[in-house]
Computed example of a mutant assay.
Amino acid sequence: MRATDHDHKGHGRGAPLGRVTLAHDERTLRRKLLTLEDGTDVLVDLPQTVKLEDGDVLVLEDGRHVDVAAAPEALLEIRARDTEHLMALCWHLGNRHLPCQIDYAGARLLIGRDHVIAAMLEGLGATLAEIEAPFSPLRGAYHEAGGHGHHHDHGHDHHH
C-alpha cells in the first residue's frame, strides 16, 4: 500500500484503515516505509516533505486513510512564576533553537529532556518536571512560508 497524500486533523474522513504512532522527529516525512499498529506496512511516497501532527492522516492511493498519532516522549515540563517569567524562558529556549511546545491551557512549556538545558532553566528560576507525553513542538518561522504545507483540493471550500 502506498500513501501519496495527507490531510490535517478535523477533516472527518470516517473510519481509518489503521494507525501509526510516531515521535515528533519521525513525523517529518516524504518517502518512508511505516508499519501500522496492526503490522501492515505502508509506503509513504509524498510529492514533498510534510510535518504531520497528532490526528493528521495519510491518504492511500485507493482513498482509504491511516491515522497518525503522536508517540509519548521523554519531556521536560517547564513552569514559570508568571507571564513575564514565561516569556523570558521562551526567549532563552528560542535563542537555543530548541523544539518547544507551548501549552497555553496548562501554562507550561514542553521540550525534550536535556540535563544541560534543565540546569539552565533551574538557574533561571523555572520549575521543572520530567514527564512522558506526546510532543508537538511549534514549527520554526521559516518552516513553511506562506501556507500550511500541502497543496491539493480537499473537495470542499474552507480556509485554514
Rank of each mutant, 00 (worst) to 15 (best):
L52P: 10
T83Q: 15
G106S: 02
D62V: 08
I131Y: 05
G147V: 11
I78P: 01
P72F: 01
H8N: 08
N95D: 14
V68I: 15
K51M: 11
L138N: 04
H152Q: 03
T35C: 06
L36C: 02
G18F: 03
E77N: 06
G140C: 00
T35E: 15
E122P: 00
R79T: 15
H158A: 05
H11Q: 14
H154G: 02
R64H: 12
I117M: 13
L52Q: 07
D25Q: 13
T28A: 11
D114W: 14
A145H: 12
D62H: 04
L93W: 00
M120F: 05
C90R: 13
V116E: 13
V66A: 08
L34M: 11
E122I: 07
G12W: 12
T40H: 10
P134I: 04
G18K: 09
K32W: 05
D157F: 01
H151I: 07
L17Y: 07
T127P: 00
A15C: 00
A133F: 04
G63Q: 10
A69M: 03
I111A: 11
E26D: 14
H85R: 02
H151Q: 07
H92C: 02
G140F: 05
E77V: 02
L121S: 06
G55S: 09
A80G: 09
A70Q: 03
K32A: 10
P137W: 08
T127E: 11
G55Q: 08
V20H: 09
D41R: 14
A80M: 08
L75E: 03
T127D: 09
M120R: 05
G112Y: 00
G106E: 06
H148F: 12
Y142V: 07
